[in-house]
């Protein structure tokens, strides 16, 4: 498995309505970890309509884009939960026993996990 690399971006916790309405520059991948929690990969600023929003620079995630074939060949055997079929979708669970997430689109997949788990995940995926 090629190395997982830091995914810099912004972490935003705000009201779901404010997150829904937030404008993102083209190409920004926004992962909604929860209705009030988003990780905008590559973003450096955001205009969010919530005075109490928590907006923090995030470098605590590492990841790697994979093809769908690489997902099937390298990851699926390490996943014990059904992958979502309606795409795009964010899936979260254990991969090879390590907490991780998958951002699945029709043509590629982003594997990401907390940087603290990167070495463990890489070891287990081989």
């Amino acid at each position: 498995m090629p190395a997982l690399e830091t995914l810099p971006g912004l972490r935003i916790v705000a009201s779901p309505e404010a997150l829904d309405a937030a404008p993102w520059s083209a190409g920004t991948v926004v992962l909604r970890f929860a209705p009030d929690d988003a990780f905008a990969i590559g973003a450096t600023a955001v205009d969010i309509a919530d005075d109490h929003a928590i907006v923090a620079e995030e470098s605590g995630f590492v990841g790697r884009w994979l093809t769908r074939e690489e997902l099937d060949d390298r990851l699926v055997t390490h996943i014990e939960w059904p992958l979502p079929t309606a795409l795009p979708a964010l899936a979260q669970g254990l991969i090879a026993g390590v907490p991780a997430k998958l951002w699945l689109t029709t043509d590629r997949v982003l594997l990401l996990c907390a940087a603290a788990y990167a070495a463990e995940l890489a070891d287990r995926l081989g």
Partner: peptide, 29 residues
């Protein structure tokens, strides 16, 4: 197919190892 608990590593893990640290598991790390 059964994995042991995944223990986290701090960003300084390799620094500790390079300094000769005896690493062990505490509190999930």
């Amino acid at each position: 197919g059964v994995h042991v608990d995944a223990f986290r590593r701090t960003a300084l893990h390799d620094e500790h190892v390079a300094l000769g640290a005896q690493m062990d598991r505490f509190g999930g790390w």
